[in-house]
Design a binder for these strands. Structure first.
Lengths: 345, 345
DNA sequence: CACCTCGATGTTTACGCAAACATCACACCG
DNA sequence: CGGTGTGATGTTTGCGTAAACATCGAGGTG
């Protein structure tokens, strides 16, 4: 910086003013400085800047894996929004979803140059690891029910699941089977709870839930068992990839979709439109999630707000070709009807 | 730090020594300092550290999108390896794959606190944007043929594609059709080139390539056209998602896989094992890619090596249920034979 | 026993920047 | 024409850390 100042014939402070867009620099001076900067290939040193300003203009994102569509899409949206706000994002992967792993990530975090973090995981793992955020570091949580203690941003899991199950009931299915995600996922349990709730509200018996782990393979295994259930005509899986597995299992067992069995997924990943058959599923707006996370966090960083509370991003059902009325309607229960007030949205 | 020093009854320099694991601190002193640190919740300020040391312990990753499986898996592996080496990673998304977008990312990069960057995109976009890396910032490129100018790490695209095409020829198919990725992708053109090369080496005519954009939908469109080609019995798609689309198109048109048409993908994404039928595909070792990228970059940062050259990560063919011999063998050309020396690996 | 060595610790300094304050020139006012 | 306000620019200072150098004391050596 001193070199630039010398070359431009001004003080270093003026250089600083130019590089920060300070208004009170006369145009001719500004140009001279800009010139000198270019000539010398000057780049402001962000460490010194951060040291002086006391902020890093960086957001940390803590997560287990980018392998799930939801996470990678969310991170991408966060990164885009953060960039737009002039913030960089630092990825903090947690190797193992264990207390130690999480603890390690937070230890690193303490030394990391971030002004705030977005945590994409169930918060009880934080609690279990007995963690305290470094003071001054703000936080927003995704995929959690900790809205009473932290600011939380999440997809409206419950409403999405409700739409899926209601859709199947409206088509005339007697009841709906469910394949869950992993037990320690908040999204998964929220979706399962909403599934139970809708069935119970409609006076239907909830069959036992089958548990998966988000992977297509786990969906396949669940599907194999479901294929043996003659009474099973409608399945709601907690994500699209498990639906893919279910589809394959049903196909292998000769049960046609949607003629014999209807399937609804969750996420609306890009590939879902190309499944066999194209999957009816619940659309999540990941971009909106990312936007709200970053906004929430920046509000905290700038305004020191940081109130707990949950922001819910709405979902919507995308109807494609994997759902249809059951072949033999069971008129013992409420027949399919758009007019049924219980099911109308 | 001064507070800690005061509380521990030592100088701030001793605190610094403790927090950096310097050897010449007596055990009793060390314990006192550690104690004081804990009591005061002291965290070293990474900005000051970076300023003093002249390095950030951070690696930047520049890419267009996390939406493709390859990118997100690679980034995940990079993040894991970097964390293991004590480096953080900063994501630098390029909004638009245009010169302006790339230029913007690199401008930001100049001000970013990184010691090196890994660029996950075709390097001609860098050239086109007339970019110069900030001096002192090292770089490793992925998905590029710029091995003559930069250090490049990449999957062995050509060999993977060769394995795929040879596999189909060995099964007895007369020729192999190909669905490419986007034209500006190096991976895509490399795979297409290898496909042509194998066909030409085997003395087969290469049918016109169909172009896709990595998405399942583009694969579907290509598949629709391929389904109209009665001579088409074998298809190699440049990634798994396009294979998914092809599978759907063939199914809708009543062409059975693998009985009527064989399909091979590329990537071996997790879901590929659950496609209908489970997909034969080329496995990429993303974790290894990430490892090599980080190693290569750290070598440069530490040793100032930075020689151009390409590191290739091997691939392997995973045979599943989407490939089979053609129904009516055409004995006019080399019959399927494991013993055929041209095709043995 | 004076001297030297070496390990443990303290003191000084500078990393690059930007806020706070100081200065200066100029225009406008009565 | 002196006073005063205003905007442009310069000077000083300190952010938190760690390298370099200084100091100090203990133990070993001739």
């Amino acid at each position: 910086m001193a070199d630039v100042a010398r070359l431009a014939g001004v003080s270093s402070q003026t250089v600083s003013r130019v590089s920060n867009g300070h208004p009170s620099v006369v145009e001719s001076t500004r140009r001279q400085v800009l010139n000198a900067m270019q000539q010398l290939g000057y780049r402001p040193n962000s460490a010194a800047r951060a040291l002086k300003r006391g902020e890093f203009r960086t957001i940390g994102v803590i997560l287990f894996t980018l392998a799930t569509t939801g996470n990678s899409r969310t991170v991408e949206a966060i990164a885009a929004q953060a960039a737009h706000e002039g913030y960089a994002i630092t990825l903090i992967p947690v190797a193992m979803p264990t207390q130690d792993g999480v603890l390690g990530a937070f230890t690193r975090l303490g030394e990391l140059a971030v002004d705030g973090v977005i945590v994409i995981m169930e918060v009880h793992l934080l609690d279990a690891a007995n963690l305290t955020l470094p003071p001054g570091v703000q936080v927003v949580i995704v995929d959690s029910d900790a809205g009473d203690r932290y600011p939380v941003v999440d997809t409206d899991q419950a409403d999405g699941a409700r739409q899926a199950v209601r859709h199947l009931l409206e088509l005339g299915h007697e009841t709906v089977w469910h394949v869950t995600g992993p037990a320690d996922s908040f999204s998964s349990s929220r979706r399962a709870a909403a599934w139970r709730e809708v069935l119970s509200d409609a006076g239907r018996a909830a069959p036992p839930a089958l548990s998966g782990d988000w992977s297509a393979l786990s969906g396949y295994r669940a599907g194999l068992r479901l294929a043996e259930e003659p009474s099973c005509t409608a399945i709601f899986t907690a994500n699209d990839q498990m639906a893919l597995g279910v589809l394959r299992a049903l196909h292998e067992r000769g049960r046609r979709v949607p003629e014999d069995v209807s399937v609804v997924g969750f996420d609306d990943i890009e590939d879902a439109a190309s499944y066999l058959p194209p999957l009816t599923t619940v659309h999540q707006d990941f971009a909106e999630m990312g936007r709200r996370c970053v906004h929430g966090l920046l509000d905290q960083i700038r305004g020191h707000a940081g109130e707990p509370g949950t922001v819910l991003v709405p979902t919507r059902l995308i109807q494609r070709a994997s759902t249809a009325p059951p072949r033999h309607n069971q008129p013992a229960h409420s027949p399919p009807s758009q007019g049924d007030p219980r099911h109308t949205q």
